[in-house]
Design a protein around this nucleic acid. Structure first.
Lengths: 187, 187
DNA sequence: TGAACCATGTAAACAGTTACATGATTAA
DNA sequence: TTAATCATGTAACTGTTTACATGGTTCA
């Protein structure tokens, strides 16, 4: 399961509590593997039961700091080197595009325009994050930077694709209404 | 739920049985919204119970052909026009990249090289599909074509990104071992 | 002393996967 | 007559989301 490996990886970098981890999921990791508070705490207990992580410190308010055990690190490394994840596909936005035949051309264009403006906004946000973050040579920083760059590139091509797609739909709409134009030419 | 809307959309195009729909999921729709046989049949019964689809014909071997009802079409159109899906993020491959700090530089490079070769293979497959399919002006064809183009573009930038990322990791590896080179220069 | 934040947990519902089970029809 | 294909369904499990529940600590 990916969530457990995400936790193993984060705890291998440095010890943290469930509370800390939830914040890291909300901030940096949300982009590739979102997880809720509920899931994180449940999974931490499961990993601790399995001996892949262990409590290294207890703090106020019942705070428990975990770290990855040698067994946990072995499992993480096995997962990273021996399994090849199929590139995850599930994309609700593109499913919508696939079903756009149920709408008028105008509505389809609106859908795609919405995809475009969403991409523009997100690209700006990600680029700002890239520019405002102080990157260093630590693994978390180097690989986090790679993932962020991936996010930026994907968002940019989503924007470009949406613009192209709008054009495609308009061409189709025009060619269909060719014989019966709404507005005849001036001659 | 997305699966139900996918089914509403497919059945709005033309009537089909569960068996037909499973095949369509495996073929064209797998790229954006995979679904299992088990899921499809269960969901069809749920949609029929809710009056969003209805049986229009029965065939041999208990075959039931469904079509989308007016209520179903309304719901589909509402979903397409009124909900704005957050661009789905969950990406196991990129989660792996994020956690690459648990591996050596060499292993990390191997991981990224694997991402690249996977993308190369997939891009070839998708481009072949694009070139071999006979596209027409039906909505299913037009919008299917848009989604396929999206898949091709994403795959191509995954390939390019992976090449760039390998370079980035090698630069880091080199700068870290700078003071202690394995192979000293010839002077 | 009250608001903001720190901190962990459980329950219920929903979504998705894997495996099993059954049987009809068609074509070699 | 038997293998391939058509066709539908259920059960058990795993993963994910939403909501609820509880209480400690810090700071203005």
């Amino acid at each position: 399961m990916s969530l457990s490996h995400a936790l193993l990886g984060l705890l291998a970098e440095r010890p943290a509590s469930g509370y800390d981890l939830v914040k890291r999921f909300d901030q940096s990791l949300a982009a590739v593997w979102p997880a809720t508070q509920s899931q994180v705490y449940t999974e931490l207990n499961r990993l601790a039961d399995g001996g892949l992580i262990t409590v290294v410190a207890e703090g106020p308010r019942g705070r428990k700091e975990y770290t990855t055990t040698p067994a946990g690190l072995t499992e993480l490394r096995r997962w990273l080197t021996e399994t090849r994840p199929r590139p995850e596909r599930r994309n609700e936005q593109m499913l919508g595009v696939f079903l756009l035949g149920a709408l008028s051309h105008e509505e389809a264009v609106a859908y795609l325009t919405n995809v475009e403006s969403g991409a523009v906004a997100e690209a700006a946000q990600l680029a700002a994050l890239r520019d405002e973050t102080e990157w260093d040579d630590s693994p978390g920083s180097v690989y986090g930077r790679l993932v962020l760059e991936w996010g930026i590139r994907v968002t940019e091509i989503r924007r470009d694709w949406a613009r192209w797609a709008v054009g495609q739909v308009k061409v189709r709409a025009a060619s269909i209404s060719e014989g019966v134009p709404d507005e005849p030419g001036p001659w």
